[in-house]
Amino acid sequence: AAGGCLTDVDGHSYIDFTNDMSAGFYGHSNPVILAAIRGALDKGISFGGPHKHEVALAEDICRRFTSIERVRFCNSGTEANLVAMGLARAVTGRPLVLAFHGGYHGSLATYVNVEAPLNVDKLQMRFARYNDEKDVLRVLEECGAETAAIIVEPMMASGGGILANRAFLAALRALADNFGALLIFDEVVTARLSPGGLQDLVQIRPDLTTLGKSLGGGLTFGAFGGRAKLIDRLDPSRPGAILHSGTFNNNVLTMTVGHIGLTQVATIEALQAVNARGDKLRHSLLKVATERRTALSISGYGSILSLHFQPAAPRNPTEITTTPTQRKLFHLDMLLHGFYTPRRGTINLSLATTDDDCEAFVNTFAGFLDRYSAFLPHD
């Protein structure tokens, strides 16, 4: 893989619109990132103690995310979410966490199927409908006194690229305060949408934020942060500290690349440009669908788009009517025409994605609509 393209084992080349499920935000083999990795390799990979590179990345994150006063690192978004929920339980002394049907907080906390075999803490989870504050209140009226936290993606990723209404997120902030629970924003995917994440765009501050994917510059990465009095409970120098450890939490490669990525690659100007490119692509895709009277809605924000072959954009996963067969057809047809997209219909632009890539995608998508019109819904 290089830049915005990849080649498979049979020699077929693809323009990449998957980009490692949004983690490959900087593009493949970005020269600035590669130089940082090579430089770090020469100085040792893992020191077994604190070092200046993690301090630099921590300062970067705290500067960008105004709700994060302290941050701790781990190895994945999954781990960050599990630790954040565990921390909420520990500091509140309450057992339950409220999440949302269709949410995804990692391989051990996937609520697309709340009964997924690998899910942990099943008996300590409660669920409500996304973008439905009345349903959240219903659940909290039943178990609010035992609820340690509400965890939410400001934009569902695996659940369909569904953006939370600002009023819904504001209601969660108020309900968490009223019931004495913590509010956790899972920004593992959405941190890339602005310098301060989606929370900065909606101007709602959570108590804890979890991070991962793109902020590691393509390497294994996770982090969680928030109010100092919460994160300081994990400070091992303090009496009664809660243990949080991990051999590779501060591995030199990720810490170095994370810092270089935030300061030299994912600049404010770069984020604005890729979001504008995503908005233009969204408009163009809707235009070709409208011309063919094909029912299409596109969820997401900026550089992340999620296609649904249905007239109205879903407000929560229960409103998705696009069928698995339609998604499979789209996925395979785009592969055959040189575009690598996820089966679930998400498009993740990277900083290496060009206007020409997007124009070619639109043209191929128009051809897909023509080729398979009989299998798609129409207005």
Rank of each mutant, 00 (worst) to 15 (best):
V55S: 12
Q124T: 04
K122S: 12
H105M: 10
R89L: 08
N119V: 06
F73Q: 02
L118P: 00
E146M: 13
C62A: 13
L118S: 12
M85W: 01
I61V: 15
A56I: 04
G102E: 06
L87R: 04
E59I: 09
H105Q: 08
H101M: 10
Y111S: 01
L98V: 08
F65D: 00
A84Y: 05
I61R: 01
T92M: 10
C62T: 15
G106F: 02
R72K: 15
A90N: 14
N131A: 14
G144M: 08
D132M: 05
E79P: 00
T66I: 08
N75A: 04
R138C: 09
A58Y: 00
A90R: 15
V83W: 09
R138K: 14
I61M: 14
Q124V: 00
G93M: 11
V91P: 01
L96W: 03
N81T: 07
V114F: 08
L98G: 02
G77P: 00
M85L: 06
A145Q: 15
P117M: 10
I68G: 00
R126L: 12
T92R: 15
D132Y: 10
V139P: 08
L137K: 14
L82H: 11
T147V: 11
A128H: 02
A84W: 05
H105D: 08
F73R: 00
V97R: 03
V120I: 13
K134N: 04
S107D: 13
N75P: 00
E54V: 12
A99F: 04
A80W: 09
D135R: 09
E141F: 05
D135C: 09
S76W: 07
V120W: 05
V55Y: 11
D60F: 03
D135Q: 10
L98S: 01
C74L: 12
L98F: 06
A99R: 01
Y104Q: 06
A99G: 15
S67D: 08
L98I: 08
L108H: 10
C74S: 11
A109C: 12
F100T: 01
L118C: 06
F127W: 12
A58R: 05
Y104R: 07
V97H: 01
L98Y: 02
L82Y: 08
A99Q: 01
A109K: 02
H105P: 09
G103M: 00
L123I: 03
R94D: 06
S67F: 02
V114N: 07
D132W: 04
E142F: 07
E79D: 13
A56R: 15
K134D: 09
L108A: 03
L87V: 10
G106N: 04
V71P: 05
F73H: 03
K134F: 02
A80V: 09
V83P: 03
K122H: 10
P117I: 10
A116F: 13
G102P: 12
G77I: 02
A99L: 09
G77T: 09
V83E: 01
L96E: 02
R94H: 13
A116P: 00
A128T: 10
E69Q: 15
